[in-house]
Amino acid sequence: MRIGLFVTCLVDGMFPDVGDATVAVLERLGHEVDVPLAQTCCGQMHVNTGYAREALPLVRRHVAAFAGYEAVVAPSGSCAGLVRHHYPALAEATGDAALAAAAADLAARTYELSEFLVGVLGVTDVGAHYPHRVTYHPTCHSLRLLRVGDAPTRLLRAVAGLELVELPAAEACCGFGGTFALKNADTSTAMLADKMRDVLSTGAEVVTAGDSSCLMHIGGGLSRLRAGVRPVHLAEILASTAPAAGPPVAATAVSAAARAVR
Protein backbone atom coordinates (compact mmCIF):
# COMPACT_ATOMS: atom_id res chain seq x y z
CA MET A 1 0.00 0.00 0.00
CA ARG A 2 1.32 3.42 -0.90
CA ILE A 3 1.01 5.54 2.17
CA GLY A 4 1.40 9.29 2.39
CA LEU A 5 2.79 10.43 5.73
CA PHE A 6 0.81 13.39 7.06
CA VAL A 7 3.62 14.39 9.36
CA THR A 8 1.84 17.37 10.99
CA CYS A 9 3.52 20.73 11.45
CA LEU A 10 4.25 20.10 15.11
CA VAL A 11 6.10 16.86 14.46
CA ASP A 12 7.86 18.41 11.50
CA GLY A 13 9.15 21.35 13.48
CA MET A 14 9.44 20.07 17.05
CA PHE A 15 9.39 16.26 17.15
CA PRO A 16 11.08 14.90 14.00
CA ASP A 17 11.82 11.61 15.80
CA VAL A 18 8.09 10.93 15.86
CA GLY A 19 8.00 11.31 12.08
CA ASP A 20 10.95 8.95 11.70
CA ALA A 21 9.32 6.45 14.00
CA THR A 22 6.04 6.51 12.10
CA VAL A 23 7.86 5.84 8.85
CA ALA A 24 9.90 3.08 10.47
CA VAL A 25 6.85 1.23 11.79
CA LEU A 26 5.01 1.38 8.48
CA GLU A 27 8.06 0.36 6.49
CA ARG A 28 8.81 -2.49 8.84
CA LEU A 29 5.35 -3.79 8.02
CA GLY A 30 6.28 -3.74 4.34
CA HIS A 31 4.59 -0.60 3.19
CA GLU A 32 5.88 2.12 0.97
CA VAL A 33 5.87 5.46 2.75
CA ASP A 34 6.14 8.76 1.00
CA VAL A 35 6.34 12.22 2.49
CA PRO A 36 4.92 14.83 0.15
CA LEU A 37 6.94 17.91 0.99
CA ALA A 38 4.20 20.13 -0.39
CA GLN A 39 2.44 19.64 2.95
CA THR A 40 2.88 22.27 5.63
CA CYS A 41 0.05 22.37 8.16
CA CYS A 42 -3.54 21.14 7.97
CA GLY A 43 -4.77 24.43 9.43
CA GLN A 44 -6.10 23.04 12.69
CA MET A 45 -4.79 25.85 14.86
CA HIS A 46 -6.42 28.40 12.59
CA VAL A 47 -9.71 26.60 12.25
CA ASN A 48 -10.06 25.80 15.93
CA THR A 49 -9.21 29.36 16.95
CA GLY A 50 -11.79 30.88 14.62
CA TYR A 51 -9.55 31.77 11.70
CA ALA A 52 -11.22 29.48 9.23
CA ARG A 53 -10.81 32.04 6.50
CA GLU A 54 -7.04 32.17 7.02
CA ALA A 55 -6.99 28.37 7.05
CA LEU A 56 -8.56 27.94 3.64
CA PRO A 57 -5.32 28.22 1.64
CA LEU A 58 -3.85 25.62 4.00
CA VAL A 59 -6.82 23.35 3.46
CA ARG A 60 -6.40 23.65 -0.32
CA ARG A 61 -2.71 22.94 -0.07
CA HIS A 62 -3.20 19.94 2.17
CA VAL A 63 -5.89 18.41 -0.03
CA ALA A 64 -3.71 18.83 -3.12
CA ALA A 65 -0.58 17.50 -1.41
CA PHE A 66 -2.24 14.21 -0.53
CA ALA A 67 -4.13 13.51 -3.73
CA GLY A 68 -3.33 10.07 -5.08
CA TYR A 69 -2.29 8.19 -1.93
CA GLU A 70 -4.27 5.11 -1.00
CA ALA A 71 -3.96 6.05 2.63
CA VAL A 72 -2.80 9.11 4.50
CA VAL A 73 -1.48 8.40 7.97
CA ALA A 74 -0.76 10.92 10.72
CA PRO A 75 0.92 10.42 14.08
CA SER A 76 -1.87 12.57 15.53
CA GLY A 77 -5.51 11.99 16.34
CA SER A 78 -6.17 15.68 16.43
CA CYS A 79 -4.79 16.54 12.98
CA ALA A 80 -6.33 13.44 11.40
CA GLY A 81 -9.56 14.40 13.14
CA LEU A 82 -9.60 17.84 11.56
CA VAL A 83 -9.22 16.39 8.08
CA ARG A 84 -11.77 13.65 8.70
CA HIS A 85 -14.42 15.71 10.45
CA HIS A 86 -14.02 19.33 9.47
CA TYR A 87 -12.43 19.38 6.02
CA PRO A 88 -15.59 18.43 4.11
CA ALA A 89 -17.64 21.21 5.68
CA LEU A 90 -14.83 23.75 5.43
CA ALA A 91 -14.34 22.97 1.77
CA GLU A 92 -18.04 23.00 1.09
CA ALA A 93 -18.40 26.44 2.64
CA THR A 94 -16.09 27.87 -0.02
CA GLY A 95 -18.60 26.96 -2.73
CA ASP A 96 -15.81 25.27 -4.70
CA ALA A 97 -17.34 21.96 -5.71
CA ALA A 98 -14.07 20.42 -6.85
CA LEU A 99 -12.41 21.27 -3.56
CA ALA A 100 -15.38 19.91 -1.64
CA ALA A 101 -15.22 16.62 -3.50
CA ALA A 102 -11.47 16.34 -3.05
CA ALA A 103 -11.74 17.16 0.67
CA ALA A 104 -14.43 14.54 1.22
CA ASP A 105 -12.30 12.03 -0.63
CA LEU A 106 -9.22 12.85 1.44
CA ALA A 107 -11.25 12.68 4.65
CA ALA A 108 -12.17 9.09 3.84
CA ARG A 109 -8.52 8.14 3.29
CA THR A 110 -7.00 9.84 6.32
CA TYR A 111 -6.12 7.85 9.44
CA GLU A 112 -4.46 8.27 12.78
CA LEU A 113 -1.54 5.83 13.15
CA SER A 114 -3.01 3.40 15.69
CA GLU A 115 -6.37 3.10 13.97
CA PHE A 116 -4.56 2.56 10.67
CA LEU A 117 -2.38 -0.19 12.08
CA VAL A 118 -5.14 -2.04 13.90
CA GLY A 119 -8.23 -1.13 11.91
CA VAL A 120 -6.91 -1.03 8.36
CA LEU A 121 -3.80 -3.21 8.39
CA GLY A 122 -5.18 -5.58 11.02
CA VAL A 123 -1.89 -5.62 12.92
CA THR A 124 -1.45 -5.42 16.67
CA ASP A 125 2.08 -6.81 17.03
CA VAL A 126 4.44 -4.57 15.12
CA GLY A 127 7.54 -6.34 16.41
CA ALA A 128 8.48 -3.70 18.91
CA HIS A 129 10.53 -4.09 22.06
CA TYR A 130 10.34 -1.51 24.81
CA PRO A 131 11.28 -2.68 28.30
CA HIS A 132 9.66 0.10 30.32
CA ARG A 133 6.76 0.79 32.62
CA VAL A 134 4.36 2.85 30.49
CA THR A 135 1.01 4.53 31.02
CA TYR A 136 -1.21 5.58 28.14
CA HIS A 137 -3.23 8.81 27.91
CA PRO A 138 -6.01 8.57 25.31
CA THR A 139 -6.09 11.98 23.67
CA CYS A 140 -9.54 13.50 23.31
CA HIS A 141 -9.64 13.67 19.55
CA SER A 142 -8.38 10.14 19.06
CA LEU A 143 -10.88 8.92 21.63
CA ARG A 144 -14.02 10.93 20.90
CA LEU A 145 -13.54 12.37 17.40
CA LEU A 146 -11.89 9.41 15.66
CA ARG A 147 -13.09 6.67 18.03
CA VAL A 148 -9.80 4.77 17.88
CA GLY A 149 -11.06 2.81 20.87
CA ASP A 150 -8.61 0.30 22.26
CA ALA A 151 -6.35 0.26 19.19
CA PRO A 152 -3.48 2.05 20.99
CA THR A 153 -3.61 -0.18 24.05
CA ARG A 154 -3.81 -3.32 21.92
CA LEU A 155 -0.66 -2.19 20.15
CA LEU A 156 1.06 -1.40 23.44
CA ARG A 157 0.12 -4.72 25.00
CA ALA A 158 1.82 -6.50 22.09
CA VAL A 159 5.11 -4.68 22.64
CA ALA A 160 7.73 -7.02 24.07
CA GLY A 161 8.96 -6.04 27.49
CA LEU A 162 6.48 -3.24 27.96
CA GLU A 163 4.53 -3.05 31.19
CA LEU A 164 1.31 -1.11 30.59
CA VAL A 165 -0.09 0.58 33.70
CA GLU A 166 -3.65 1.88 33.62
CA LEU A 167 -3.97 5.64 33.97
CA PRO A 168 -6.68 6.74 36.45
CA ALA A 169 -9.32 9.02 34.90
CA ALA A 170 -7.60 8.32 31.62
CA GLU A 171 -10.37 9.79 29.48
CA ALA A 172 -10.19 13.20 31.13
CA CYS A 173 -8.77 15.91 28.92
CA CYS A 174 -5.22 17.01 29.79
CA GLY A 175 -6.15 20.66 29.31
CA PHE A 176 -4.15 21.37 26.18
CA GLY A 177 -6.85 22.27 23.67
CA GLY A 178 -4.57 24.15 21.27
CA THR A 179 -4.78 27.88 21.84
CA PHE A 180 -6.94 27.09 24.89
CA ALA A 181 -3.68 26.49 26.74
CA LEU A 182 -2.76 30.12 26.09
CA LYS A 183 -6.15 31.83 26.15
CA ASN A 184 -7.32 30.00 29.27
CA ALA A 185 -3.96 29.23 30.78
CA ASP A 186 -5.23 29.00 34.36
CA THR A 187 -7.96 26.48 33.60
CA SER A 188 -5.59 24.58 31.36
CA THR A 189 -3.05 24.42 34.15
CA ALA A 190 -5.65 23.18 36.63
CA MET A 191 -6.55 20.36 34.28
CA LEU A 192 -2.91 19.61 33.66
CA ALA A 193 -2.27 19.38 37.39
CA ASP A 194 -4.89 16.67 37.77
CA LYS A 195 -3.57 14.80 34.75
CA MET A 196 -0.02 14.92 36.12
CA ARG A 197 -1.21 13.71 39.52
CA ASP A 198 -2.83 10.73 37.83
CA VAL A 199 0.23 10.03 35.69
CA LEU A 200 2.51 10.17 38.70
CA SER A 201 0.20 7.87 40.66
CA THR A 202 0.90 5.07 38.18
CA GLY A 203 4.61 5.00 38.92
CA ALA A 204 5.27 4.80 35.17
CA GLU A 205 8.60 5.82 33.68
CA VAL A 206 6.97 6.87 30.45
CA VAL A 207 3.67 8.50 29.56
CA THR A 208 2.61 7.90 26.00
CA ALA A 209 -0.14 9.13 23.71
CA GLY A 210 -0.97 9.40 20.05
CA ASP A 211 -0.63 13.17 19.86
CA SER A 212 2.61 15.11 20.24
CA SER A 213 0.63 18.22 21.16
CA CYS A 214 -0.98 16.72 24.27
CA LEU A 215 2.30 15.04 25.16
CA MET A 216 4.09 18.36 24.85
CA HIS A 217 1.57 19.75 27.32
CA ILE A 218 1.73 16.88 29.81
CA GLY A 219 5.48 16.51 29.33
CA GLY A 220 6.00 20.25 29.71
CA GLY A 221 4.25 20.14 33.06
CA LEU A 222 6.16 17.07 34.21
CA SER A 223 9.42 18.65 33.11
CA ARG A 224 8.63 21.75 35.13
CA LEU A 225 8.04 19.53 38.16
CA ARG A 226 11.28 17.67 37.41
CA ALA A 227 9.05 14.62 37.79
CA GLY A 228 11.26 12.32 35.77
CA VAL A 229 8.40 10.77 33.81
CA ARG A 230 9.23 10.99 30.12
CA PRO A 231 6.67 11.78 27.42
CA VAL A 232 7.16 9.42 24.48
CA HIS A 233 4.90 9.30 21.44
CA LEU A 234 3.18 5.99 20.72
CA ALA A 235 4.94 5.79 17.35
CA GLU A 236 8.35 5.94 19.01
CA ILE A 237 7.48 3.04 21.28
CA LEU A 238 6.17 1.01 18.35
CA ALA A 239 9.33 1.80 16.35
CA SER A 240 11.65 0.61 19.10
CA THR A 241 13.21 -2.80 18.65
CA ALA A 242 15.54 -4.93 20.72
CA PRO A 243 19.19 -3.96 20.19
CA ALA A 244 20.13 -7.52 19.24
CA ALA A 245 17.21 -8.08 16.94
CA GLY A 246 19.28 -8.17 13.77
CA PRO A 247 20.07 -5.43 11.35
CA PRO A 248 17.64 -2.57 11.39
CA VAL A 249 15.17 -2.39 8.59
CA ALA A 250 16.75 0.12 6.29
CA ALA A 251 14.88 2.44 4.08
CA THR A 252 14.74 -0.04 1.27
CA ALA A 253 11.21 0.50 0.15
CA VAL A 254 11.25 4.21 -0.03
CA SER A 255 9.42 5.67 -2.96
CA ALA A 256 11.54 6.84 -5.82
CA ALA A 257 11.14 10.47 -5.09
CA ALA A 258 9.25 12.68 -2.80
CA ARG A 259 6.62 14.66 -4.56
CA ALA A 260 7.99 17.81 -5.99
CA VAL A 261 7.89 20.79 -3.77
CA ARG A 262 5.49 23.19 -5.34
Partner: peptide
Protein backbone atom coordinates in the same frame (compact mmCIF):
# COMPACT_ATOMS: atom_id res chain seq x y z
CA UNK B 1 -13.14 29.72 23.68
CA UNK B 2 -13.98 28.31 27.13
CA UNK B 3 -13.45 24.75 25.96
CA UNK B 4 -10.63 22.43 24.99
CA UNK B 5 -12.93 20.86 22.36
CA UNK B 6 -12.43 17.56 24.18
CA UNK B 7 -15.82 16.29 23.00
CA UNK B 8 -17.12 14.89 26.30
Amino acid sequence: YASTLCGA
